[in-house]
Nucleic acid binder design. Structure first.
Lengths: 201, 201
DNA sequence: CTGTTTACTTAACAGTGTTAACCTTACCGT
DNA sequence: ACGGTAAGGTTAACACTGTTAAGTAAACAG
């Protein structure tokens, strides 16, 4: 009727869903509520998405894309190797803490309700890993770090950072511990963990 | 009617819920389904639990208890400091991978649906951290590690290990990477990350 | 033999995801 | 210009969901 025609309904649904998810929480993101905000009926959503999981998956994809953009932005080969790594780690953490709900969208969706196919959807992040692995490869070539497989190393680092973020976002961090100190120390630990430390025998 | 009377309904509900959650997944764990398996009606559950979140919280508590037991079991002050740390890390990972659903119960429940009070429920894990912090304190006293606050360090290590586990359980690990290699390397990195490495100036 | 408590039930409310069937509007080939 | 078709939406319904109010039946206390 009086819908603005310059935006496709699919995009509108995605935007409304994300807004609902971020502002009102997962449980409030129902098909009927989404539909109401988009000025359509719930069934119309099924014209653009197979089902609710499919819609969620599209949201995940979008958020992954945003995270990747931040990481790529901060990559700068002109900078020192270690510095580059630290800046990436901090950019990752910053993204997660500044957009906690968006980060949640990426990781906190129950996998059981996801079929197998979405694995391919994560190819975009995979690219980011490979970039990271590239950086690590350079460091290895310069004998700055001690690592077998740069790709494994990239995943290891990422997993550890995700753990740090996850603990904070899940509110599992002891209230006696100041968050920033925790982050600083964690980043230090993570980076130190694979820097070469040849004890001069 | 023909319920076995030697088990309280509360415990029965917990057991049935956990079984349902583990075997059939979160979405299948509905109040009516739980009730049916426990040979009661759904409303009876509300006599023992405030609501579904309350029931979930009790499940989380139970699982946290089990995880803690495994960790405490593996603690052995007679062993070397580093070895003890590594064994705890591996025990943690082993628990998570052997009982993935139970681990999920602990961490993957959406926090938004949890009110503030459950913070206290995590005191039991907090104890485990303090034991870990104690171990780290000893290492610090012996100048084996370089760390300011042992409690922060304990949380850092735990967060990193959780990250590793989380990546595996969420199936976010690149299929080209062998899981065991990933784990080994991660554990190495994490432990190396805070071992003292004074470059003899 | 009452009164109260305990443990449970039935019935209902408001909401959920999803599907089948229907209606409009727009475009396309003849 | 006209009929067919397909896109993009609708209504109505199904089988569920968590949760609550009210009722019931048994056990126990005075």
């Amino acid at each position: 009727m009086l819908t603005l025609p310059y935006m496709s309904l699919r995009k509108e649904i995605l935007d409304v869903s994300k807004d609902l998810l971020i502002k009102d929480g997962f449980s409030k993101m129902s098909m009927r509520r989404i539909a109401k905000r988009a000025n359509v009926t719930a069934t119309s959503i099924y014209l653009h998405f197979k089902n609710k999981d499919d819609l969620l998956l599209a949201l995940i994809e979008e958020s992954i894309h945003n995270l990747k953009e931040v990481l790529v932005e901060v990559m700068d080969p002109s900078k020192g190797f270690i510095q580059q790594l630290e800046e990436m780690a901090r950019a990752y953490i910053r993204f997660a803490l500044e957009h906690p709900k968006e980060y949640e969208i990426i990781y906190m969706v129950r996998p059981e309700e996801m079929p197998k196919y979405p694995r391919e959807k994560f190819n975009e992040v995979r690219n980011a890993y490979e970039l990271l692995a590239g950086i690590i490869s350079d460091g290895k070539a310069n004998s700055l770090i001690d690592v077998d497989d740069p790709l494994i190393c990239a995943y290891t680092i990422w997993a550890q950072i995700h753990g740090v973020v996850s603990v904070i976002l899940n509110r599992r961090l002891d209230t006696r511990i100041p968050q920033q100190k925790f982050i600083d120390q964690a980043v230090d630990h993570i980076i130190q963990g694979f820097i070469i430390q040849k004890t001069p025998a």
